[in-house]
Design a protein around this nucleic acid. Structure first.
Length: 463
RNA sequence: GGCGGCGUGGCCGAGUGGUUAGGCAGGGGCCUGCAAAGCCCCGUACUCCGGUUCGAAUCCGGACGCCGCCUCCA
């Protein structure tokens, strides 16, 4: 079984699923009030990789990721643009899925929306009130963090220490600055739901408890998300479950940030690049490769230079796919290892990749093994060991597919004019009329093709 | 103030007590009509200062620098 760094334990431990052969994962999804940025892209890619890998290994993965569609920022944006909240959430949720589809991120098995779970959230808050773990203030209902004995588990700090660092609290009614809103009473012209404790809307930390436990059940396996959600969001989710006496996530995993110029990319720092913009000018697979080349818990620096570097590295793998006519994998469905015929060379590669992946999702090592295999497959083919080379190349492709990395080897269909130039060039070369052949090559290059001489004559691919 | 992380060759980025990470870029060679793709070879890195050790980029102590969480945030 895969070993993962568990944020609650502070160490790498084997994943210990509740049900044998199955893994239940909850991923905190986006608040849809703006275009997704590169950090969201990494978030989606990292956990898509984990999901794909576990699935590849034969586990039945149930992957749930929510969409937060009621929130202060959504309301603020709707106000600023003089449109309804519905319009904001519809626009940006569509942008979210468009971007993830482009990245080749598989859709979750379920994508619960907060607004569809308000009734359950109200019920949860009522129970917390009944247990006296929640209390009422002028502006809403708050959770009393002092009622959870091990509050601070995920933060890695005891309650007192957290309290000492808390900033000046604007709400004097709260018993502790760390207490968080379960329910916010309705203000003028805000979306609201009626409840036993008045009209209002749920606080952010409640939705994920209700939806994760509701869809995956008590004691589900893995709760993951960005490092910035560890505290207070995940801490607070957990606090509610603990207060209710319900076993929550068995494991916690968090990924690191996308950095820009040495600083965390974030909306509040205004240093973000939208994923939508990146994907408009870059091969999405290059971003996936860039993400895979660093460890998920490390920060990654994303810049035009690092993206270009990844694009060139990807070109090397695509060239291999072209040479061995490998089929494009990692499409709509998730790949499964049991369907792969490895062969000796391939099995050695798979075992190397597997060892890396099972060691806390060590994708950099896995990718290194893939590149080494690419060199070896090419070398074998150069030596004439065609069968072994082909077998290794196929295994490499299967491993890439397992990581969600789609290699593209087949050439795009050629238009008539391109086909004509290719034929003319081959004729000229057959007659050793090099100057003429070179002129046709120049024409092809001018039309956006890269020209290579293969065993069967001119081969072109898009530049 | 509390807690945590990081500092690796031109760049990106792993690793972790002794043997090549990997990629990109660069140099040399092979192949090619010339290219492209591919293969082979090359740089010999680990912030600084002490310490432990036969041996440290890797462990310990200290210094310096950087980043993050403690507030919304992937």
């Amino acid at each position: 079984m895969i070993r993962l760094y568990d944020s609650a334990r502070g160490s790498v431990v084997p994943l210990d699923p509740r049900d044998e052969g199955a893994v239940s994962i909850y991923l905190c999804g986006p608040t849809v009030y703006d275009l997704p940025h590169l950090g969201h892209g990494r978030h989606a890619l990292v956990w898509d990789t984990l999901r794909r890998w576990l699935t590849f290994g034969g586990l039945a993965v149930r992957f749930v990721s929510n969409v937060t569609d009621i929130d202060d920022k959504i309301i603020a944006r709707a106000d600023a643009e003089h449109v309804g909240e519905d319009e904001i959430t519809a626009t940006y949720e569509a942008a979210w899925w468009d971007a993830l589809d482009a990245l080749g991120v598989a859709r979750p098995d379920a994508t619960p929306h907060a607004t569809a779970y308000v009734d359950q959230m109200i019920a949860l808050i009522e129970r917390l009130l009944a247990l006296d773990v929640a209390y009422e203030c002028e502006d809403g209902i708050y959770f009393d963090v002092s009622r959870v004995a091990d509050y601070g588990l995920l933060a890695g700090q005891p309650l007192e220490s957290l309290r000492a660092g808390a900033r000046v609290e604007s709400n004097p009614d709260k018993r502790s600055p760390l207490d968080f809103a379960l329910w916010k009473n309705a203000k003028f012209a805000e979306p609201s739901w009626s409840s036993p404790f008045g009209s209002g809307r749920p606080g952010w930390h409640t939705e994920c408890v209700v939806m994760s436990l509701g869809l995956l059940g008590d004691d589900f396996d893995l709760h993951c998300g960005g490092l910035d959600l560890k505290f207070p969001h995940h801490e607070n989710e957990r606090a509610q479950a603990v207060a209710l006496g319900r076993p929550f996530a068995r494991h916690w995993a968090h990924h690191g940030w996308v950095m820009v110029g040495g600083e965390k990319m974030s909306k509040s720092l205004h240093n973000f690049t939208s994923l939508t913009d990146l994907l408009a000018q870059t091969d999405a697979r290059a971003y996936r490769l860039l993400v895979l080349r660093s460890h998920y818990r490390s920060p990654i620096e994303v810049s035009p230079a690092t993206v270009a570097d990844a694009e060139r590295a990807l070109a090397r793998l695509d060239a291999l796919a072209r040479r061995f006519a490998l089929p494009a994998l990692a499409g709509e469905g998730l790949e499964v290892a049991s369907g792969v015929v490895w062969g000796d060379e391939g099995l050695a590669l798979y075992e190397t990749v597997e060892a890396a992946m099972e060691d806390d999702l060590d994708t950099p090592s896995a990718v290194a093994a893939l590149f080494e295999a690419a060199t070896r497959a090419n070398a074998l083919a150069d030596e004439g060991a065609t069968a072994r080379a082909t077998e290794l190349a196929a295994a490499l492709n299967a491993c890439c597919g397992a990581l969600g990395l789609r290699l593209i080897g087949d050439e795009s269909a050629l238009d008539a004019e391109t086909l004509r130039l290719v034929t003319r060039r081959d004729q000229a070369r057959a007659q050793r009329e090099w100057a003429v052949a070179d002129r046709y090559r120049d024409d092809l290059v001018a039309r956006g093709w890269v020209v290579e001489d293969g065993p069967g004559g001119t081969v072109v691919r898009r530049a």
